[in-house]
């Protein structure tokens, strides 16, 4: 075991796979010599060589498209899109090509590629460095969407993603890179140092998809969340003085619906959190499934707390972010009802 923040855990996962499998390649903007704008690939080019870890032109459609060709050939490219906000030029290659390759060719060609990209706000990134576009991908048949909330999960899930024979979108909540975040900007930032989930094995391990993690246990309420919102949920439940089942989904597609149903049937109350915009967000999908499977167990309407349906504003970041204060208020209101 070693102490790692999420950047180090991701780097360790990449290092393990580069060492194990000569078919794993890493490329993207600034990931080579420099090691990535968030440092996730720092030192990997020096260790594994220029041919294994290299820089690309600023062309997200080109990065994904080249990876689709390589993956069809039989390699396992793990590419980085510098910010999820910049993934859209690659959207056609992801949705129409990578996600459909196995289906349209009846298995003759596949797309075992991993797309890593930082998501979410809380770092003063404004509308161009803060987006959470997960729902645009969970809506697409043929691609898996993964989002870890801590270093231990990040490494195990990323190794699993690279080894998966289908395309995986691996979303990295950038506000969690250096430490858990309660969603209150007035509290000094904390690091992963000394945190239980910052204890990460140095070697190879995987975490299965379609398996939610029960972050905290409680009988008053089920809070379904992922990424940064896991830590906001924990802080808000504490502030509201209730004990909740906080389910960290980790994998949005495929989804661990059984764990969700089990918890909601137990507590009878459910709140869904995400940082992304509300309308047609992933929360809408969760709520639809929950009402279908748990309707008669529910004691209150399902509540969702999300980002507003606006672009992510720079100066008003904390008014936009569904932080501790807003979630605490929603919990309190729900428990009174």
């Amino acid at each position: 075991m070693a102490q790692m923040n999420m950047i180090e855990a991701i780097r360790s996962a990449l290092d393990v796979k580069l060492s194990q499998d000569p078919d794993v390649l890493i490329f993207g903007e600034d990931v080579g010599y420099f090691g990535g704008v968030f440092r996730c690939t720092a030192g990997l080019q020096e260790k594994h060589g220029l041919h294994r870890v290299f820089d690309t032109p600023i062309a997200e459609g080109g990065i994904v498209g080249a990876a689709v060709g390589m993956a069809a050939f039989g390699l396992r490219p793990c590419i980085e899109i510098q910010f999820a906000d910049y993934i859209y030029p690659g959207y056609d290659q992801i949705c129409s090509e990578a996600a459909r390759m196995r289906y349209r060719s009846a298995g003759e060609f596949t797309s075992p590629l991993t797309i890593r990209t930082p998501v979410g706000g809380g770092i003063h990134g404004g509308q161009t460095h803060s987006q959470s576009p997960e729902a645009l991908f969970t809506h697409i048949a043929g691609i898996k969407t993964i989002i870890p909330s801590n270093p231990y999960d990040a490494k195990g899930l990323l190794i699993k993603a690279i080894e998966d024979n289908d395309p995986v979108l691996f979303l990295e909540p950038k506000r969690l890179y250096n430490g858990p975040f309660e969603g209150d900007p007035n509290i000094p930032a904390v690091s992963w140092a000394g945190h239980e989930l910052g204890e990460v094995p140095e070697g190879h391990y995987t975490i299965d998809f379609e398996k939610a993690r029960l972050h905290t246990q409680g009988s008053a309420l089920t809070i379904i969340c992922y990424g940064t919102m896991v830590w906001v949920a924990e802080a808000a439940a504490k502030a509201a003085g209730i004990e909740a089942d906080i389910l960290d989904l980790r994998s949005l597609m495929p989804l661990d619906l059984d764990s969700i149903i089990k918890s909601v049937k137990k507590t009878g109350r459910c709140m869904v959190l995400h940082e992304a915009t509300r309308t047609s967000g992933f929360g809408a999908e969760l709520i639809a499934e929950i009402q279908e499977h748990c309707f008669y167990a529910l004691e209150a309407p399902i509540v969702r707390v999300t980002g507003w349906d606006t672009p992510y504003p720079h100066a008003l970041e904390w008014e936009y972010f569904p932080g501790k204060a807003r979630v605490t208020k929603a919990i309190t209101k729900m428990m009174e009802g």
């Binding site: 459609g61 080109g62 498209g65 080249a66 990876a67 689709v68 060709g69 390589m70 993956a71 069809a72 050939f73 039989g74 390699l75 490219p77 056609d92 290659q93 129409s96 090509e97």
Partner: peptide, 14 residues
Amino acid sequence: GTQMIQAVGWGMAC
């Protein structure tokens, strides 16, 4: 047009 850059990826793999 999508196959053009995929072909380049395939060539890079070769």
